[in-house]
Nucleic acid binder design. Structure first.
Lengths: 248, 248
DNA sequence: CGCTTCTTTGACGAGCCTCAAACTGAGTGG
DNA sequence: CCACTCAGTTTGAGGCTCGTCAAAGAAGCG
């Protein structure tokens, strides 16, 4: 999972791969709904996600909530060492399994992991790109476009780490969570999904999404995918990212 | 300007201050509307803004535009060395004056500018906080709240660098730019501003904004200011940040 | 089976957008 | 000094998108 994600960002040397594969101990499990860190920077507890979904969000005093980003298997939490402010909270959306990423950061600081350094730098850039995409969705797209764009983003991200294929992927989110991410009401998310289904663009049932017509969706949402960084991921036994125990 | 901004983030040693003050050469001027860098990372041309306003934005193929953030005097462009992707473009909103920030980055890499390192790290964190604030505005606030929140943010940021006081500040933006930042139509921005004026919460004329009732605005918009980092800025001869020649 | 959580549907209204046009102010040139 | 233009602001009318309220199904779970 993590190996796969980082390799998609930069070539890694054998010792670097070895380091990643040895991260296996120091695993941790978190229940759905658990708060992983009060701060945005998560300073001091850098981790990788092995399985499950989390999100970064802010809750307003009147109960409104805005989700900033989703964290999927292979993504990192708190990898950038920044002074922490109350930027956002990170919460597990499903049961979650993580590993300590500290050894990776140490190797980088010691200077003997240039590939990992590049990979993590690119990871940060990509995260920022996702934030920008999200701003465009919220600021300049209709509900219909937002949902389509968001589903395409998830499809792509999950395919990269080997969860799902080019049209099918796990989607363990309630419509309330979608609403809080996309800046819509639950009811309107529901109606929008129905419309996409009625038009045979997507299918959605029991935690699995299927993009029936990716091309048309991409046109609707003006979805442009990031330029590929390295060799495309090789086919892998399909997993849904929500198993009890996940690989690195 | 730059000195003031960075000092508000971290204590700086005398040599560090000296370094900043010697940045003066290698100034550059940019006309309003000019594109400063095609990429988000701006890699290779790190700069500080001495005077004028810029923004980071993305333009959709159908002409819609979303502004991600505003860059004010004292802010940096392309300071983080990230692999550049087509994340966003940076454009000057007014005539702009910048200086090369390369010497600062070099001193940091050489390891002999810990204060500057902290300052720039905090700067990045604050930038991300602004992005999150922006996401909340776009996703979960009404037009009325958005405008109020945004004006409060600008007031605070400009006060920190000594432009304007606790209720008055320069605002060289057209309503079209406001609309593209706040995810609204020009017409609706106009109506919202009128409402705020009618209710005697703000005044707006010829490039200057006045927040008549900051407290009430802050309540309306649920605006919470970031925790202060160091001593409050000392009073300074007021400037509007748009002069022909600006100080460091 | 009965609870809770999630999804779905309907009715209604408010917020915001679009279109269109008038108005203002700052140049620019005759 | 007066058209004239051009960018920006303001106003009105009308309509679509999306939110709110309410309640009825489904679906998971002990």
């Amino acid at each position: 999972m993590v190996v796969r994600r980082l390799r998609s960002l930069s070539a890694l040397s054998d010792p670097e791969l070895e380091l990643l594969r040895n991260l296996g101990d120091r695993r941790e499990r978190h229940a759905s709904g658990e708060e992983l860190a009060a701060e945005g920077g998560l300073s001091g507890r850098p981790r990788f996600i092995l399985s499950g979904w989390a999100c970064r969000q802010r809750v307003l005093p009147d109960g409104r909530r805005q989700i900033f980003s989703f964290l999927l298997p292979g993504d990192g939490l708190g990898l950038s060492r920044r002074p922490a402010l109350e930027l956002s909270t990170t919460a597990a959306l499903t049961a979650l399994e993580t590993v300590d990423a500290q050894p990776v950061l140490q190797a980088m600081q010691a200077g003997n992991a240039p590939g990992l350094g590049r990979a993590l730098a690119t990871l940060e850039t990509l995260e920022q790109m996702l934030l920008f995409d999200h701003l465009v969705r919220l600021g300049r797209q209709t509900a219909y476009e937002r949902v389509a764009h968001f589903l395409l983003e998830l499809q792509r991200r999950l395919e990269i780490v080997g969860l799902g294929d080019d049209q099918r992927f796990p989607l363990p989110l309630t419509q309330e969570i979608l609403a809080d991410a996309l800046g819509l009401s639950i009811v309107h998310v529901n109606r929008t999904l129905q419309q996409l289904r009625r038009e045979r663009l997507i299918e959605l049932r029991s935690g699995v999404a299927i993009l029936l017509e990716r091309e048309r969706l991409a046109n609707i949402a003006d979805y442009r995918l990031p330029p590929p960084r390295s060799a495309p991921a090789s086919p892998t036994p399909r997993r849904n990212g929500l198993e009890d125990s996940a690989q690195l």
